[in-house]
């Protein structure tokens, strides 16, 4: 068993060792080993040319990562909190995501951006967001988000090896979670059925997958057999795995830690309806309200789509309320 954060260190170490063009950059990533301790020991192993402490200059960092990728390097950029991605957006959206297409495939942009996301840690409105959805509408960037240490390892290695920009999301409440590490790679754009069930399909990502699994346990005791899918990737989207599940269950509930407006769940349900409306008896979303993440523990807990809300929601849907 290995902690989620150590799986990230392992994946980074293996990529640094395997490919001399890989390098890491970010604030406090080298000497301090990262504020979430996800790069600990890498400076000592790979040296200051490959593990670089940067100034607090997100625009320069992201622009420089892009430029170095054009030169054939494989930058892995850490943006400390997902919220700070707002400062990286121009370079990512208007340059990294577009350059390969605009060049008529003459150049590639093998850039990985890692960032810590998610609410529940009492960090308030500006240290708790999920920037994955901000970039969801930008063609040219993959967005992946693991829920287990094994997937963190496998997805991160695939991200670094990819020849296009990948945003890799690390949920803060998963860093200390333990799981198996088999060092297998996970292909970008593949969802995983993490619990089989016949009555209802529940789709989530990151911390939400664990909430969904817990809710499924509660519901199983009441005779409801829930299938849980870990989407793992927003782009490419593995709609096929979701459709296959809904063929069986006819019902889908998406659990999203974020507002429903412009969120991934609304997009998924929309795509599902556009492609397979006849399969759907019911399609709903458990999300956060359309509000920033509040600080106060009572408010933040109410903001989050926790296990209790998921269970209550499913009960109500099945009862036809």
């Amino acid at each position: 068993m290995i902690e989620f954060r150590h799986a990230i260190i392992e994946a980074l170490a293996d990529e640094l060792a395997a490919d001399p063009s890989v390098f890491l950059l970010g604030e406090d990533v080298a000497a301090a080993g990262g504020v979430f301790k996800t790069t600990e020991g890498l400076l000592e192993r790979f040296g200051p040319d490959r593990v670089i402490d940067t100034p607090i200059s997100e625009l320069a960092m992201t622009g420089a990562a892009f430029g170095s990728a054009l030169m054939g390097r494989r930058p892995v950029l850490e943006i400390m909190f997902g919220d700070f991605m707002a400062l990286s957006m121009d370079s990512l959206i208007n340059q990294s995501a577009k350059w390969r297409f605009l060049s008529n495939d003459q150049v590639t942009v093998p850039l990985t951006v890692r960032t810590a996301v998610g609410a529940g840690g009492r960090f308030g409105a500006i240290h708790s967001q999920n920037p994955g959805t901000w970039l969801h509408n930008v063609a040219g960037i993959s967005i992946v988000a693991p829920s287990t240490p094994g997937d963190a390892y496998g997805l991160l290695r695939s991200a670094v090896q990819a020849d296009h920009p990948v945003l890799f999301l690390e949920h803060k409440r998963l860093f200390s979670m333990k799981g198996e590490l088999d060092r297998g790679l996970v292909e970008l754009g593949t969802a995983a059925v993490v619990r089989e069930g016949a009555d209802l399909t529940m789709v989530s990502m990151m911390k939400g997958v664990h909430d969904a699994l817990q809710a499924a346990d509660v519901l199983a005791a009441e005779g409801t057999d829930v299938e849980v899918i870990d989407l793992r990737s927003l782009r490419p989207l593995d709609l096929e795995t979701v459709v296959r599940s809904v063929e069986k269950t006819g019902r889908i509930v998406c659990v999203e830690e974020g507002p429903v407006t412009g969120g991934w769940a609304a997009g998924l349900v929309g795509q599902l309806a556009a492609q397979a409306l006849d399969l759907l008896e019911d399609a709903t979303i458990v999300s956060a309200p359309d509000l920033p993440v509040p600080f106060s523990p009572t408010l933040e807990d109410a903001w989050l789509p926790g296990v209790e809300r998921i269970v209550a929601h499913v009960r109500a849907r099945l009862a036809g309320v």
Binding site: F123, G124, A125, I126, H127, P294, F295, S296, P297, L299
Partner: peptide, 29 residues
């Protein structure tokens, strides 16, 4: 994180501010 907080508990230490005193923000960015 209490109701009597300067921002009703919504902001917390990272973001607390007091517009009534012309302190317009604790900017976390």
């Amino acid at each position: 994180g209490r109701v009597d907080g300067l921002c009703g508990g919504r902001a917390g230490s990272l973001n607390v501010f007091d517009p009534t005193r012309n302190y317009i923000g604790s900017f976390a960015i």
